[in-house]
Amino acid sequence: MIRTRLVAQRLAFLFLLGCVFFNYPLLSIFNQGGSLFGMPPLYAWLMGSWLVLIALLALVIEGMHD
């Protein structure tokens, strides 16, 4: 599956990126009242960064044949 070491390394990087996105201390920045795009900041951040991470995963995987 993972043809090249490069793709595996990119995915591993995304894993680490996700760990950072989804954990303290980044979370504490958004853990407050108010609203971001009409949503609570924490919710907006988690769903948004999650979607970005998925998009990056797709980009790395689907682009690996090029």
Binding site: M1, A8, L11, A12, F15, L53
Partner: peptide, 19 residues
């Protein structure tokens, strides 16, 4: 939001799928 970690974990696992 406490329900969410249960789904973030698998996302991270699949980033490690190659390993």
């Amino acid at each position: 939001i406490g329900f969410l970690p249960i789904y973030l974990g698998p996302t991270l696992l699949f980033a490690l799928a190659g390993f």
